[in-house]
Amino acid sequence: MSQLEPDPTTTDATDRGASLDHVLQVSSRLATAMNSVIEGKQPVVRTAITVLLAEGHLLVEDVPGVGKTLLAKTLGRCIDASVRRVQFTPDLLPSDITGVSVYNQDVRDFEFRPGAIFANVVVGDEINRASPKTQSALLESMEEAQVTVDGTTYVLPRPFIVMATQNPIEMEGTYPLPEAQRDRFMARISMGYPSARSELEMLDVHGGASPLEHLSPVTDAATVQAMVLAVRQVHASPAVRQYIVDLAAATRTSSALRLGASPRATLHLLRASRAHAALAGRDHVLPDDVQQMAVPVLAHRLMPTGETQMARRSAADVLTDLLQRVRVPAPSR
């Protein structure tokens, strides 16, 4: 099992993870490298790094051609780690993801051939094109960070992040992720179109070769894992935990939402807020961190009611309202 609980008694640097300064240094290198490829999308890049450090998975949802795959690939390229890319198609089989036991004539036994998921960074392109069966195979392994084939459990490498892209426009012949499965992604981001200036720059700089070609890794898997451990150490005070619970409760009681945030969402929000605080160089979480992460972490899990949809309000809009209304708890006496 790699879902280790941080042990406060150990003082070993690798176990405790890197120092916050180190986290800050490496993450800013990472951000710089990624920003050099993805023009003018600093918030998106920042969220991606946050999710990486918070041990979550990222759903990138947007129209075609805005650089969803590029973002995922860039992150993979920046880290010196195993990167696998899976192009999801209707005929993709679950075993293509998880791996399959093949009979080896030489040893006269079944031998496990690891699937696409056995990598530090897995880029799942157009995840909604695969059949639900395949999708669920991916999502199960994402959640559990392990794969069980023919009764044998294989632990996935660390760090492990799945970055799936999804196209919300072209729906024909696709299997959109059910809500239960979207819940497994820590955050959903939209790329959005670049600004006119960034687009122009993109034409100038990347008009010729692929920008990824010149990109060299700025960190490695071990360092990222150390950073992940450091993020786990970030202090979340009772007041902040209370705030997160209050926010989740507010989504559940809001009359504008059909489905509120799950307990898993609460957990994800806390982890994402920790990473966000660490990226700001703080060793404690502020309600501001929670507010910053609330929309990317929660919005894709919420289902607006029909009335809300008719009023053209998205779940993110409702969430923004809730953020303005839910009181930030002061520490209780």
Partner: peptide, 9 residues
């Protein structure tokens, strides 16, 4: 300040 404002906000 608005109801849900953090100290910073």
């Amino acid at each position: 300040p608005s109801e849900g404002a953090t100290p910073r906000e």
